[in-house]
Design a protein around this nucleic acid. Structure first.
Lengths: 221, 221
DNA sequence: TGTGAGCCGTACCGTACGTTACGGTTCGCC
DNA sequence: GGCGAACCGTAACGTACGGTACGGCTCACA
């Protein structure tokens, strides 16, 4: 919710090592990260952990922020946009996102954040939210707007279009992973899925090729 | 995974009361359900809890199974299927599903199962998986097959078609709810979203109305 | 060389919670 | 009425873990 949820923090080299150890432990052990286990793993004292991060929640928050900082995707340069470039840009977004959500780190952190979201502390979930779905929205939206401006896309609500794109990309993959279904997306499967999602999105929101190919205009939804 | 994950269990009246109390506690308190709190809330002794459910995991499992048993949707009767009936059947599925995943009970139990999924005990997540996405797949598939048999739908892979339907319906709603974003879907919003999802699905997988209107067949994706 | 800051390792404390044990009560059944 | 099974309420135990305290080490710096 609050802007601070996405705020970047500076971590020292040693702190980053500790946070990486925390990530490794969370990935291995599920959400059962204990301060003692982290201190052992990272070869640091618990006193240091509490000095740096305040308490356990602070540590978890810092860990999620650290991982989020690592995952920031590179914005793709906006050259001239034709249907070809738009499709492959969407495809790249889709593939990036599928890679992220199917990584063991993302699964573990999302589990942590989801399990944490019911509780009293209002964040963790919100941090993942801002660096997950919301971040993807922010990154994709300029592309959608550019596509519309170029006459390649037709939609009334960019938000709704994004949500549909998200659904076409993610489908039930993320919830199945979070619920523990053992599935590994190979690079090939990701590429295929990304292409399919991109094509389906263009089929729904693309301006009719009709204008180039003389086919009838499908109605938009 | 195992078939037992979806197996039904018989619960006595009193046991159902206790499990409902457990559900209420989980919804209120997040995943922090303690045996003592449940015993207090349900006015039963902890000894009874352990006698009935074995241990805490057994209790959680029973709770999830009990909720799953309550949520079984009514299968819709298969009358003659035209494009109209298919669309509204899909719409009903979509609305049903949106209602389920946006209910506070479902959110709380999914949080529980997701948080549990990283751990050692291999179920809970698997139970929700079978009564969640997999159940929806099982329920929707006959409709898809009937739609294809009736020449109303075109797809190569019923599974892929279902996954896309799921994505169009759920989009990012479930993950945002699980991560704690405060959003409430009104009945109107659900109806609108369900209609949109159904129409988008038909736009992607519907057999071309062309055949009735003499237009060319767009390529499928 | 002295000194103080920062950190490691470890021991320790308090508490929450899963689990067990037990006395007292209700109730069906003979 | 007598009996046993089931169950309630509560007390007690053991342990795991968050959080704190403290002694010792290293090292920059005067």
């Amino acid at each position: 919710m609050s802007v601070t949820a996405t705020e970047d923090r500076e971590f020292s080299e040693r702190q980053r090592e500790v946070l990486d150890a925390a990530l490794a432990l969370i990935v291995e052990n599920g959400s059962a990260l204990t301060m003692s286990a982290l201190a052992r793993r990272a070869s640091c004292s618990k006193e240091t952990l509490y000095k740096w991060f305040g308490d356990r929640d602070g540590l978890l928050t810092a860990t999620v922020q650290w991982q989020a900082a690592k995952v920031r995707g590179v914005p793709l340069d906006r050259e001239r946009l034709d249907r070809e470039a738009l499709g492959s840009a969407l495809e790249r977004f889709a593939a990036d996102w599928l890679r992220v959500i199917s990584s063991s780190t993302s699964v573990a952190l999302n589990r942590l954040a989801v399990g944490h979201a019911g509780g009293d502390t209002p964040d963790l979930g919100s941090i993942v939210l801002h660096n997950g779905p919301f971040a993807m929205n922010r990154r994709v939206r300029p592309l959608l707007m550019a596509g519309e401006a170029a006459g390649l896309l037709r939609f009334e609500d960019a938000d709704a279009a994004f949500h549909t794109f998200f659904g076409l990309v993610v489908r039930d993959v993320q919830i199945r992973l979070l619920l523990g279904e053992p599935m590994s997306l190979s690079a090939d499967e990701i590429a295929i899925d990304a292409r399919r999602a991109s094509q389906q999105f263009l089929a729904l929101f693309g301006a009719p090729e009709a204008e180039m190919a003389g086919q009838p205009t499908p109605r938009r939804i």
